[in-house]
């Protein structure tokens, strides 16, 4: 995530307001503020296809998302943690470690990815065939798809969602965790 890439992203008006970068003391205002941050972070990650955020790294590298140069305001690491925790509580993110230093951003929920995946599988006549996880992420067939180069953790969550609907089965060719593939079923 470099600031150069982010230039294509259209920031909302509230991004240019100074109070936006300070956690609001009044609870109602703070709620509203966190919701705005949630919208901004999810939209930003979605537009740049960002799936993972390292909190400290984002602050240190002066990511444009948390540092507005124009008004010289930045989000503190403590504030960012609070905001991300709020997103996690809303189900659009998951902590990747116990220290809560890295987070998986689910700007599209696994169930939504799952239905996209399954539609693609049906459209391509791939039901009842076996695909490798790598193939779904990097294969020639999925190049034009939104899930091309999808984050592995998100992809696995989506596949598990399909597994729950009996539309797929994740399995390994040799019993270890490295050679994973998935068989899709026609329902």
């Amino acid at each position: 995530m470099t600031n150069k890439e982010a230039t294509a992203f259209q920031f909302p008006v509230y991004y240019n307001k100074e109070p936006f970068f300070t956690v609001q003391p009044v609870l109602d205002t703070r709620k509203k503020q966190f919701q705005m941050w949630r919208d901004l972070i999810l939209q930003y990650c979605s537009s740049l296809k960002i799936y993972e955020l390292d909190l400290l790294e984002s602050i240190k590298s002066n990511s444009i998302l948390f540092f507005n140069q124009k008004i010289n305001r930045r989000l503190s690491i403590e504030s960012l943690k609070l905001i991300i925790q709020d997103i996690v509580d809303n189900g659009y993110a998951e902590w990747l470690d116990k220290d809560k230093s890295r987070v998986l951003i689910l700007w599209r929920k696994p169930e939504e990815w799952a239905s996209l995946l399954y539609k693609w599988v049906s459209d391509c006549g791939l039901a009842n065939s076996i695909l490798t996880v790598w193939e779904i992420q990097n294969g020639d067939d999925s190049k034009s798809q939104e899930f091309y180069q999808l984050n592995t953790a998100v992809l696995m969550k989506s596949l598990k969602a399909l597994e729950k609907q009996n539309k797929a089965q994740i399995f390994s060719s040799n019993g270890d965790d490295s050679n994973l593939g998935v068989k899709f079923f026609s329902v």
């Binding site: 596949l159 089965q169 965790d177 079923f185």
Partner: peptide, 21 residues
């Protein structure tokens, strides 16, 4: 995931595993 796969192995044949490999 792999554990889940082993529990419901009936849907996955040895051929499937060979193809995956």
């Amino acid at each position: 995931c792999a554990g889940g796969g082993r529990q419901k192995n009936n849907k996955i044949s040895n051929t499937d595993k060979a193809v995956l490999d």
